[in-house]
Nucleic acid binder design. Structure first.
Lengths: 344, 344
DNA sequence: CTGTTAGCGCATTCAG
DNA sequence: CTGAATGCGCTAACAG
């Protein structure tokens, strides 16, 4: 347990003033000669500048606050991966707070982070309100949001509308005309509104009357989707579209237990692109989001605003379709997955 | 863009001295009357004490460093949940670093965290070495490990041996005598050595000769297990034991594609207890670990060492069996899952 | 109980 | 180029 060595001791050992050591540390001008002496002294003492004293002076913490709705989610994990990928090389570290899916805690977390002296804040929001906008305006720090969007706030997120549209257009193209959309509450704007709207517009373009979509309401979790699956089936669609992969998994499980063959008798799709969709049987066709990329983009946006004072922007990242085994092409006779081979 | 409010302004607004405000904040003695005035002033200004200034004085950062092997894993997520559950109410915040499954980065992260002035460090390790022990000895901070164990280091982790033993005993009791153990490299001591040893001892107690276990080597991921599944089948066991749920999922998928019925023709089990095991078909019987609990215990151990200077300990948390649908009781005639009903 | 007085370790003026 | 001086915002003696 060594004695904590300060800049003062280094200065004494090197025979210079504290300021000179400080300048050496912060790329100020120091003569070659003293530079060498200081380096030797630092080497010998094993000096490390005190993080907190430094921050107290400079007002720069090299800390980024992150507010997450929860931790035990793969989505959040990927997002964090992406964030770290950008922040780490830039010398930033990450302070994580969890909102537990509560808007109020989210707000509190942002506030708390600000007082902790972070340089910027990144929020994976569960729902953006006018209060968020107000708070961000009061805070003298750049704040970047993801997960949800709101006018006047910097948001980097998935293009939910586009994803829905892509899925709608794809299913239409596969010959489907009657879908059940297993969706969540409209209180979630991204998933409950935008994604659904996109799907509708893609599946029923130009308000053509040849397509039908029935809505069935469900929660985000596997179980509630499982419970609502009977109702979905009662509409006798050719395809059931889960608003998330989790929802689709619940549906798949229900169908499997009832002996309803997918996609032979009914097709099922999801949104998300989680690995688990490739594990189930049949493997789930889904529109995938690259949350790691979102994390990278969001972190980069934050860094940009930190350095270049860039203005607020709202950017939507595209998704892509992963065709696996759970959708039947109605234009062609049924071909089983076994005959086509495994697609992961 | 508000002005950064300091303790000084609060003091002025409340008509007291800075020290009184400080005392109010740090549970010192303050008269009821002034206490009220200070509280009002704090309320009005929205004051939050400056973290860095405080730390500079007190030598306490109220920050705990966490080193994680990766972020996009449910296990890690649960662990973090548990950690937060304990740390948050105690006023600690969390600084997260990722080792990306590299022992070297893990070591560097610990070092870096120490420099950042955290009060303690929690490491979800990928493999403990003598270097870890040396580093921890040099660092004047409590460090708690999980994921792996090592003599002389504080480790709170899953009882891998016990879990393996439990599964072995259970399968034996279900009448199985010939198993394939789909395991990982012994370089992972927890999973590759302890868990396997436990299984062997549980499945073949007292070195009785009536049971047979064949080993098949695989990686941690779904795909590598899928690829090795043919070899597993070639041994014609009555049960295939995946060393992790992920591995078992790969096996399940292979069997499903080959039309081999589980558990009618062969049983499959896993370790981990992830939700996804309940989603697949048939639902996976597994030995579950409570990683959230591990996180809580580990965080508590760290707090204990922080406060009471408790000595190093190594504690193994128990697991429990989740019986679902993927194991057949060989003592009885086969009954399909459908007949028994869904178990989640 | 309370205000005054000192720093914590460092970066940054400001004169040399 | 360099050293002396000045706080950053807060806590912890110290005398009231």
């Amino acid at each position: 347990m060594e004695h904590k060595v300060t800049i003062k001791e280094v200065a004494e050992l090197a025979g210079v003033s504290k300021s000179t050591v400080s300048r050496y540390l912060n790329s100020g001008y120091v003569s070659e000669e003293k530079k060498e002496r200081v380096r030797a002294a630092i080497q010998e003492t094993g000096f490390k500048s005190n993080f907190f004293a430094k921050r107290l002076k400079t007002k720069e913490s090299k800390l980024i606050g992150i507010v997450l709705p929860r931790m035990d989610s793969v989505t959040v994990g990927k997002l964090l991966m992406g964030i770290n990928r950008i922040l780490d090389p830039s010398g930033y570290q990450v302070l994580v707070l969890v909102s537990q899916l509560s808007q109020e805690k989210e707000l509190r977390a942002i506030h708390s982070l600000q007082q902790q002296g972070v340089d910027g804040i990144l929020v994976d929001s569960v729902g953006l309100t006018a209060e968020h906008e107000k708070l961000v305006r009061e805070i003298p720090l750049p704040v970047v949001f993801t997960g949800q969007k709101h006018d006047g706030l910097t948001c980097i997120k998935v293009d939910d509308y586009g994803a829905g549209h892509r899925m709608g257009a794809y299913l239409r193209q596969m010959g489907h005309r009657h879908a059940v959309f297993a969706g969540v509450s409209e209180s979630d704007r991204a998933v409950g509104v935008d994604r659904k709207r996109g799907f509708l517009d893609g599946f029923c373009p130009h308000d053509q009357d040849d397509a039908q979509v029935d809505f069935v309401h469900t929660g985000f979790d596997f179980l509630s989707a499982y419970d609502a699956a009977a109702e979905m089936c009662s509409h006798h669609p050719t395809v059931i579209v889960g608003a998330t992969d989790n929802i689709s998994l619940g549906i798949l499980r229900y169908l499997h237990e009832r002996g309803i063959r997918v996609p032979e008798q009914v097709s099922v799709t999801g949104f998300g692109g989680y690995e688990v969709g490739a594990v189930v049987y049949p493997a789930l066709t889904t529109v995938a989001f690259d949350f790691e990329l979102i994390g990278m983009r969001a972190a980069q946006a934050l860094l940009d605003r930190l350095k270049n004072k860039e203005p607020d922007v709202c950017r939507l990242e595209p998704s892509h379709l992963i065709e696996r085994e759970s959708v039947r092409n109605l234009h062609r006779p049924y071909v089983s997955a076994e005959q086509k081979g495994l697609t992961l």
